[in-house]
Write a protein that binds this DNA or RNA. Structure first.
Lengths: 153, 153
DNA sequence: GGGTAATAGTTGATTTTGTAACTAACAATA
DNA sequence: TATTGTTAGTTACAAAATCAACTATTACCC
């Protein structure tokens, strides 16, 4: 006597959306961002985009808004607003390019540099904490895969 | 003659923010979401949260807004609004629980089910495409690590 | 050179999200 | 059964993201 099965009792497909990579990536990204967000938010009143801009400038040095957008894949309007706020708070300086006066070069001030170092220290610690769950080989592989998925070659 | 080095020439630290896990996770998540977003956005006019709610209902069947929020870690206000929109568009039905009239049970309509199947098919194909860059062992490890980082045990 | 297209960055309008306060229903306890 | 506390879900308002249009400047090219 075969009873009627609901659609959810039947195995229709071997694909399980709970393992869908974009879904898992988003969940992991969101979860791992939250803890760190508290730090730059509470300690420096920064938004996520601002922290990203700050860390790109801290990591690679002087560059234009466009370059930051390209590297970090942040839309130019977001970069523009983040730059405004960071400049207001004296974390960065903006200087027009003399040869192409449309663009301007952004650079960390001493205060920006200090914030960057501070946050980088926290980030380092937090990264260690996240990596602690895995072997160093696993973490290396994870980073490499994420870089590839992110389109960073 | 030791020249003055700029701060970026010096190695101050072994930690490179370009490898910061939350950063890499976000980049990978964003990149991998974009392609798929186009599908549910253009094909069904859905937002990300709506697609997520739809797929939870499609995957696990009838459940309440609260359960969806708990499983997918989506805030209740986001779920509430997604449910409203999905119900307006007749992708889901809402029926009050007779024993506890605060909560209601959500279920896919035929149209919702069709959309779910369609999108799941696209997702499956896309997942395969993403996984193609790696060995199956690598992908399995990746998923498992992401689950752990996401706090899904 | 003059006209057109392209580029860097900004601004404004519209959507979407986040936060907090709220309603309605239920539970527990005295 | 009144009192107080919880819970499911909604709503209102503020914050932020998105999208399109805009300014100013440079590049192209006839």
């Amino acid at each position: 006597m075969t009873e009627k099965l609901t659609k959810h009792d039947m195995v229709e497909d071997d694909f399980d959306l709970a393992n869908f990579l974009p879904f898992l990536l988003n969940q992991a990204a969101e979860e791992s961002s939250l803890t760190f967000q508290d730090v730059y938010k509470n300690r420096y009143g920064m938004l996520r985009t601002e922290w990203r801009v700050l860390f790109h400038l801290g990591m690679y040095g002087r560059m234009t808004a466009k370059e930051i957008g390209a590297r970090a894949k942040i839309h130019k309007t977001k970069v523009s607003r983040a730059v405004q706020r960071l400049a207001e708070r004296r974390f960065i300086t903006r200087t027009r390019d003399s040869r192409d006066r449309r663009s301007e070069h952004l650079e960390l001030t001493a205060a920006g540099e200090a914030a960057y170092r501070d946050l980088r220290g926290v980030a380092k610690e937090y990264d260690r904490k996240l990596a602690r769950h895995f072997t160093s080989g696993e973490v290396a592989l994870l980073r490499s895969m994420l870089r590839q998925l992110a389109g960073i070659r």
